[in-house]
Design a protein around this nucleic acid. Structure first.
Length: 200
DNA sequence: ATGTTGATTGGCT
DNA sequence: GCCAATCAACATT
């Protein structure tokens, strides 16, 4: 599994380097896993990233955002729009609110179970969005604040060959709504160019 | 105590 | 393309 030093770096760097790696959830005795093909970085800047949950409350932790301020390599799972769970990985230094949102992946293991979680949708729609992949991998509130570097954990990321830089595309983050510039347009979204499982 | 807003998705026009 | 679903966090009263 990827070790703590991998995560204890700037969010943008971790977001880029997570492309191609394998996210694994050990679930009811089976591995639900996929190749990460799209990520977004939040915070990790001299100025507060106003799109980042950690910038709320004057940049101080709240019960919801506490894990973002904690140690790197932990999961930050939160509920939004009254319906959806979104899965993030905490990065950077403890005390700063940095995280990488996993936006899309390509199923590689446990596909029978993912299909059940996402039925009757076609395969690309199992995991081509941040709330879709949490459904497919059965991730929810109970997975908030877990250590992805723990030997006995149920969620971790496995190493895999890096995606060649010329195949990595970047652009503005998705769904930021009323967030002011420059945060609205800063290109902190990363994806594997042309990959069919990238979100639309 | 009440009102507003979302790091989204899926269904309908 | 537009909009409802559905609720916790946060801001405002």
């Amino acid at each position: 599994m990827l070790p703590l030093p991998f995560y204890a770096r700037p969010a943008q760097q971790v977001a880029r380097d997570l492309l191609g790696k394998t996210l694994v959830h050990q679930w009811q005795g089976v591995r639900l896993a996929g190749r990460i093909v799209e990520t977004e970085a939040y915070c990790d800047s001299a100025e507060p990233d106003l799109a980042c949950h950690g910038s709320r409350n004057g940049g101080r932790p709240t019960p919801r955002t506490a894990v973002m301020f904690g140690r790197a390599g932990h999961s930050y799972v939160y509920f939004t729009y009254g319906i959806h769970w979104l899965f993030n990985i905490v990065t950077g230094e403890e005390g700063q609110a940095n995280a990488v949102l996993i936006r899309a992946l390509e199923p590689t293991e446990g596909e029978v179970h993912m299909a059940m979680h996402r039925a009757p949708r076609p395969r690309p729609e199992w995991t081509n969005g941040p709330a879709k992949l949490t459904q497919a991998l059965a991730l929810n509130k109970s997975h908030n604040g877990l250590n992805l570097c723990a030997a006995d954990g149920v969620i971790w990321v496995e190493d895999a060959p890096a995606v060649p830089p010329n195949l990595i595309a970047t652009g503005p983050r998705i769904g930021l709504g009323q967030t002011p510039e420059p945060w609205l347009s800063i290109p902190w979204r990363y994806w594997v160019a042309g990959h069919p499982f990238v979100s639309k």
